[in-house]
Design a protein around this nucleic acid. Structure first.
Lengths: 208, 208
DNA sequence: TCAAGATATGAACTGAGGTTCACTACTAAA
DNA sequence: TTTAGTAGTGAACCTCAGTTCATATCTTGA
């Protein structure tokens, strides 16, 4: 046997996989999926093209992993907000606010994950992400209706509208891209939150 | 000179261009941009691949024309609603309703035009379309605010939210695709309209 | 019917990007 | 210091889709 056959072997392999994954993720964050060409990924990771294929079986699987890891994190955060014991209105506000500020920090990546189509296999994971995100809002809306706080709207449609609204306003091509200042971002997030709250509750932040 | 050099010559050319354009548009409507490969377009139009290039200089220009013609029609319709002399609330409701029912009729095409990215040149036209669509809503919201009917929301953000909301709920991948029945569609459109109205006005259809 | 230009054809070309593989360089046990 | 096995390399390969062009076919005025 050669090379150390210790627990480190597996560790080293995982590290390298992660390094390549990070390189690819960074490229997507900079220029979307189009920027994540395999030779660029290799360059960014500081290895040769062929080496990438020692750690990832195909570009598709690499992309799937990017979507899976990043979206698991984001959904987890929003889900945590939805699981709180506070009133639905507060939860809705917090969930939108949380997601929005995080998405704004990495607009390009958020856009790639949410809106930019890719090949079918990656697309499937991406849609799962969107569905989970919508599901978080669906639950909040249901709770609000059950408690008689929200009007009788269709929770599924409302959830889709909420996701669509902040996606478009935040990271969509119509989003006011100029206002990259933190002040402008704050305003943007507040406006979006108000919009969605008013749509769900009938008045912003529960103040009628 | 050969072939009739009458006013018909130009007409025949225009007809053929249009026939190819329609073939391409139909393909996009069926399977999105990916389905609009040049040889498929040629097949659909009943000509050879090379013939397509006698009438269209490149795939890009063909796609640009698809986006331009279809979106000009849709924006025109929504704009007409926004230009009416009726109260902002009614206009907003009508604009969403109009756009939504039309988009539902051709979901795949609407999705391709609104959400599916393509190559940069086509993208530019596509963004112009979205911007014009948002602009219609921007104007309605502004008018509502000026008249003191709508709360003081940022019209640009609200417009983006409205467009995003109904896009996502109507034709986005999260849209309830199963409910293709006209009853389900009616419900969907109503819910979306209510959502956006409540968000802008504070109560659905102006009934507080 | 014929000539000449217009129109149509589709096989071949081209470039981009994902993938492979014969080869080199390295590591560590013997 | 071998040496067997592992990691790394990058040029070559393959596929796919857009584009071209030499050739064939058609149309109309003479």
């Amino acid at each position: 046997m050669v090379y150390r056959r210790t627990e480190n072997a597996a560790q080293r392999l995982a590290d390298k996989r992660a390094r390549i994954l990070k390189a690819a993720r960074d490229l997507v964050a900079e220029g979307g999926w189009a920027a994540a060409q395999m030779d660029h990924v290799a360059d960014k990771a500081g290895v040769a093209t062929g080496t990438v294929y020692r750690y990832w079986p195909s570009k598709t699987e690499l992309c799937v992993e990017i979507v899976a890891t990043v979206s698991a994190r984001e959904v987890g955060i929003v889900k945590a907000v939805a699981d709180r014991k506070s009133p639905p209105i507060e939860k809705l506000s917090a969930a939108i606010h949380t997601f929005a500020s995080r998405a704004l920090r990495g607009r390009r990546l958020a856009y790639a994950l949410i809106a930019e189509p890719v090949d079918p296999e990656v697309e499937a994971v991406r849609l799962e992400y969107r569905a989970q995100l919508a599901h978080c809002f669906d639950r909040i809306v249901r709770e609000g209706i059950m408690r008689g706080i929200f009007p009788r709207l269709d929770p599924a449609v409302a959830a889709a509208c909420i996701v669509g609204a902040f996606m478009e306003a935040l990271i969509g091509p119509l989003a006011p891209a100029k206002g990259t200042g933190s002040r402008a971002n704050k305003h943007l997030i507040e406006q979006i939150t108000q919009f969605c709250l008013r749509a769900s509750v009938g008045s912003p932040a529960g103040k009628p």
